[in-house]
Design a protein around this nucleic acid. Structure first.
Lengths: 222, 222
DNA sequence: TCCTTTTTGTACATATCAGTACATAAACAT
DNA sequence: ATGTTTATGTACTGATATGTACAAAAAGGA
């Protein structure tokens, strides 16, 4: 929205807006919306209070911006993971592995999902947050559903399968990872949960048990 | 813990401790832990501040008590729902219907799950809450798993099925209901999600498609 | 009646909250 | 050099947070 190529007039900023937004997101992520004070945000972003207001508006506007960016990034990560060229199983596992990579940052305590840690709490008293959250979740559902339809068209999923219903299950697995990673469960346990979910989704309707290897075992069943 | 049958000495209390705890729970439920002030708790419980402290200790202790009671009640509701005499499908749906009844109180806005609205946020910064939450979720897993083993023993579930893994999926459905009910999804949509989850769990391993009717269709498959 | 026990209600102490006014600093423009 | 523009840093305001001191009230006991 800002013309970035002509030189700015006054005193230069000492912060990078993108990086500051990312740091603010992390602060909300770890403490929740209400428990994150402006002092904490100021310290996290290394911006003083008036600069924060100048750049992002008040606390609520800053949070909304962080929420929007998180959902948009989640969507694009998910789109990339759900590659149509890959076997359905692998594509789904890429989504869950990507999610787990976010929920368990390197050598740090699990932080789970930003949405479940902040937006889900605020959604009760903040209709705007609730709508953004709902839209985000429904978009994730749609992405799963689209990929499942592709799998169905390619014969990886039985024609009797219901892609919309299975997409709901695929999202439910994701929601469960988001919740459990905040309840102390280990990454390994959650990956195993994701794998059994994928097996159930892919294997539920007479699809070949190991499409990864593309062996044509259409008659037998394990 | 209190001897309730011999007469108390001093000025009588004007509140009922159980009812006050329930009202405090509702206040946390709707606003989250951090955003619920002692003034709000005082108003909700109709107890003045010193009485609150005398009865429950500080805000954190009050919340811990509320959390404990919620988990204990959830467990007993779930135990009752997972009746061994009922078909597995019906037993599972009783759990989800019971959950939805809590998440959508009568003629009021959806409030979702107490755990996801309060404990999941606090678990990042409060190890005690995280452990209680984790124990609670694992207990719910165990209850599902036990019921699935019974179903397996009764022939409702294939011997090849993995009750522990399916229990994880059953819990995931529950977590998704908890999350989505706070994101604006309707009760009808969530019930449909639960039904497709139950169908997937029960139908995944060659079980009869309609065990409700107890027809012995052991050979054919749909 | 007077004492003891327990709860209540007001009023307070102290800390932190979100948000802003204002002077200073650092860049470009002329 | 001087002015304009934008950002910074300090210090403040009023509101609200949690937790508590203390006196009055309401019961039983002697």
């Amino acid at each position: 929205m800002n013309d970035n190529h002509h030189i700015r007039r006054g005193r230069p900023r000492t912060y990078d807006p993108g990086e500051a937004l990312e740091r603010a997101t992390e602060a909300f992520w770890r403490q929740g919306y209400s428990a994150t004070s402006l002092d904490a945000l100021s310290e996290a972003t290394r911006m003083n209070r008036p600069s924060l207001y100048g750049a992002f508006g008040d606390k609520h506007a800053l949070y909304t911006t962080a929420l929007e960016r998180y959902i948009a990034e989640g969507r694009s990560q998910m789109e990339a993971a759900l590659d149509d060229e890959l076997p359905l199983r692998d594509a789904l596992m890429r989504v869950y592995d990507g999610a787990l990579a976010m929920y368990f940052p390197n050598k740090s305590a699990a932080r789970g999902c930003f949405l479940i840690g902040t937006a889900v709490t605020e959604s009760m008293t903040d209709a705007d947050v609730r709508e953004r959250l709902g839209r985000g979740l429904r978009e994730f559902d749609r992405l799963f559903e689209r990929r499942l339809r592709v799998a169905q068209a390619q014969g990886e999923l039985a024609t009797s399968a219901d892609p919309a219903a299975l997409a709901g299950i695929a999202s439910a697995i994701l929601h469960s990872l988001a919740m459990r990673s905040r309840a102390g469960d280990s990454r390994a346990v959650l990956r195993a949960l994701a794998e059994s979910g994928v097996a159930l989704i892919c294997g539920a309707s007479g699809a070949p048990p190991k499409p990864t290897q593309r062996r044509a075992r259409r008659t037998a069943r394990s």
